[in-house]
Design a protein around this nucleic acid. Structure first.
Lengths: 296, 296
DNA sequence: AGTTTCTATCTGAAAAAGAGATACTTTAAT
DNA sequence: ATTAAAGTATCTCTTTTTCAGATAGAAACT
């Protein structure tokens, strides 16, 4: 098993082209480098350098092993960097629950930035259905969550409003409803309605959104979007979820003759209060709060 | 900078759940493990284990660092494995030139097997045009090559026939030639011919293949296949290159009224004789020889 | 309560690492 | 051709590190 010092000597010698120079760089005697390299050669059984000339030059085998040596030193650096990040109080892992409706490009972009800023923090992402985030926070399963505004929150965590999202009725461009310039309740009632259903079965709020007697339920709003694109029924979805389909024309927004503003729903970020927040959680909270939501 | 022994002690302790057991596993005294872990904790500044109970249990930070420790040991293993493979005489790298006409699924499959058999051998793949492989072998640029049979080889390397490939005239299903039940020379001469051109410009053999006065040249036969699919001209190509397009019907084979068999061309594998072959080269040579070519 | 199994810590011995000196070789310059 | 500079291998001796063994105390199990 190669020793760390031997590897360092090997690398320094290969890079500087001489054992003496390597010794100077490592602040060690030349003999130390010479011994280290020789021991490495003995242990591996591979001739690393060609010593026929004054300056030792890497053999082909040495060149191959040098790459592996670099790989080892890189993982060593990762180790020490991770240790340093832990010393700075950074969380080793963080669980973030983002309601499926809200898993949208700016959030994804924020996560990319997060990865760059905290490369050593492991992030677990949950994408629960509607209204499941509060329970995940309360139970401690998630450390932070992004969710649509609730009427009443369970005890045990903080939350903060950060924007708004608009719920709009949409259907395929080929759907019969698409040909109407305006739709009212009875128009909608004549066609199948697709409804995002919470995993949490006891949760049966949002009755106000159920208009049609012919309903289907789906766990994920993205599944619903797929069905809509296939021309199946209509649904009241958040703009952000179907933004792409709306811009490319696959889906269209239905113009309503009723309740113009009631569908504007707040977006909250919530976090547990029991567990102390580290730098990563603070960063996330701060940047989530600064996000601009497209319909907000 | 963490020491290899310290990391081993850390890992063994984490896995076995006790410093004493780790000591037994590593054939060291318990005190050695205890010291190693403690020193690692001091150097990193991170508490790795919770010692409040009898058996030390990993802290959250310890768990995070354990993963990095595993990564280090894995790269150490890679180092020693590569050293072992070099001791067995395996080449550290190998250059294989495969003429573009012959870069076909069974060869790709063979390379996949090669990668599994010799994970530490770096493979450089060249995909030269027609008739360029012998020069690559002669000059030492490539160690081994797969090529179409040549009339006369330069000195300095061995070769062995391993199969045959059929050259067929093809065109798009929408091309005027496609409507003819049989084609003769004068039919072909009326349309543009696409010809694979060697990188090696002085090489101007295969005049026998040039039939039409209206020719275009392309370096890669795959580029030619693309042009053919777009309905541009016809070409005499190896079946293996356009097999996919032939089966899905995009391209069709033209039935000729002349020289039925002259287009059957041998496939050779060649290798340099100056450089001693290692196990990897031997393996490749043996398995290339065993390949079944679809038109062979 | 007694026994077992564990950890931390101390001590001394053994091993390893490393500095310094020396002899010899190669490269470059005079 | 000779000299000077820079490099390597190897030897010796010192310093440092590593480690086993012993011991005391804590935690779990019977």
């Amino acid at each position: 098993m190669p020793n760390t010092d031997q590897l360092n000597a090997f690398i320094a010698a290969a890079e500087s082209g001489s054992f003496s120079a390597a010794g100077r760089r490592l602040k060690k005697a030349q003999s130390a480098v010479s011994n280290a390299v020789m021991n490495l050669e003995i242990e591996t059984g591979v001739d690393l350098f060609d010593r026929s000339t004054r300056k030792p030059i890497l053999t082909a085998a040495g060149e191959a092993l040098l790459k592996s040596a670099y790989a080892i030193m890189e993982s060593h650096n990762d180790f020490t960097n991770r240790a340093r990040s832990l010393n700075l109080g950074e969380e080793s892992n963080l669980c973030l629950a983002i309601e499926q409706n809200l898993f949208i490009p700016p959030v994804v972009h924020l996560l990319v930035q997060f990865e760059r800023t905290f490369p050593h923090v492991e992030l677990e992402l949950l994408d629960p259905g509607e209204n499941d985030v509060p329970e995940l926070l309360r139970s401690g399963r998630a450390d932070m969550g992004l969710m649509l505004e609730q009427e009443n929150y369970p005890q045990g965590f903080h939350f903060r409003g950060i924007g708004h999202s608009r719920r709009v009725p949409v259907c395929s461009k080929d759907h019969p409803l698409a040909s109407l310039s305006q739709v009212n309740h009875s128009d909608l009632r004549r066609y199948r309605q697709l409804i995002p259903k919470s995993l949490n079965l006891e949760e049966t709020r949002h009755h106000e959104h159920i208009l049609s007697p012919r309903v289907w339920y789906a766990e994920s709003p993205f599944v619903i979007a797929e069905l809509l694109c296939a021309g199946l029924g209509w649904a009241s979805l958040h703009e952000s979820v179907v933004q792409e389909e709306l811009t490319n024309g696959e889906l269209i927004v239905l113009k309503r003759t009723y309740q113009q503003d009631a569908s504007l729903q707040g977006i909250d970020v919530g976090w547990t209060e029991q567990q102390a927040q580290g730098p990563a959680a603070k960063w996330l909270l701060q940047h989530l709060s600064g996000l601009k939501f497209n319909s907000g």
